[in-house]
Amino acid sequence: MNKVENNRAWFLVLPVLLLVAFSAVIPLMTVVNYSIQDILDPHTRFFVGDEWFREMLRDSQLQSALGRQLIFSFSVLAIQIPLGIAIALCMPTRGIWVAISLVLVALPLLVPWNVVGTIWQLFARGDIGLLGVTLNSIGIEYNYTRGSTAAWFTVLAMDVWHWTSLVVLLCYSGLRAIPDAYYQAARIDGASRIAVFRYIQLPRLAGVLTIAVLLRFMDSFMIYAEPFVLTGGGPGSSTTFLSQHLATMAIAQFDVSRAAAFSLIYFLIILAISWVFYTIITRATKD
C-alpha cells in the first residue's frame, strides 16, 4: 500500500533516533571496535583483525557453556510450552474465578530476577528449605550446591516456576479469541476433546505460540541473575551459562577484547536461532 506520505512525521522520530544512537548504536560499535583490537592498557592498543573471534570459537570453555546453554534453553521450551498450554486450557472461562486465577498465574512474573534466585536458594536448601528437606526426607539425596544434577534440576525448576506464567497468559488470551461457534460446530460434528485441541485450538494458538517460543528462547538463552544468585554457576561450572561466562570474562578478568568478540558471537547465535524458529513456525502455519 502506498499511503499518502507525510514527511513532517520524521521530526517526531528524531529524539528516539538520538536516544537509540546514544544507548545502542554507539555502544555496539564500541564493542565491535574492541573485538578487533588487542588492548593492553587505555593507551596501548593494536589491530588484530579476526584473531579474537577465531580464538573464541576454539575456546573449549565457551563451547561447553554454549552446549549447556542450548540444552537448558531447549529443556525450558520443552517443559514450559506444553505446560503453559495445558494450564491455559484448564483455566476457567467465566465467573469470578477468571480474575482470581489470572492474578495467581501472573504473580511469579512480578518477582524480580535476583529475588527469585534468593527465594529458591532458601526454598531448596537441604537443611532448612521446604523443597530440600522434603526431598531428603523421602530418601532422595538432594543438594544443589554439590550435585550437578541437583543444581541443574533446581535452576530448571526455578525458571519453570518463574516463566511458565508468561506462556499461560499468552495462550489463555489466544484461546479466548476463538469464537464460540467453533466449539459448537465441533460438538455438532462429534469431534473428540483431542480433535478439538488438534484442529481448533492448536491452529488458532499458532500466532501466540510463535511469540511465546521466541520470547522464552531469547530470555532463557540470556539467563543470568537467577543461576548467578542460586548456584553461582556451580558446582564446578555445571550451571555456568553463556552470559555468566561472558560476565566473568569481561568484569572479573577485565578481558574486554575477548569479551567483545564473545558477545558478538553470542548475539549472532541468538539472532540465528531466533530466525530459524521464526521461519519454521511461520512456514508451518502458512500452508
Partner: peptide
C-alpha cells in the same frame, strides 16, 4: 443428533 451451519464460516483451517 442435529447439524448446524453458523452465520460466519467455521472451517478447520489445517485440514
Amino acid at each position: 443428533n442435529i447439524a448446524q451451519v453458523f452465520q460466519f464460516p467455521v472451517v478447520y483451517d489445517t485440514m
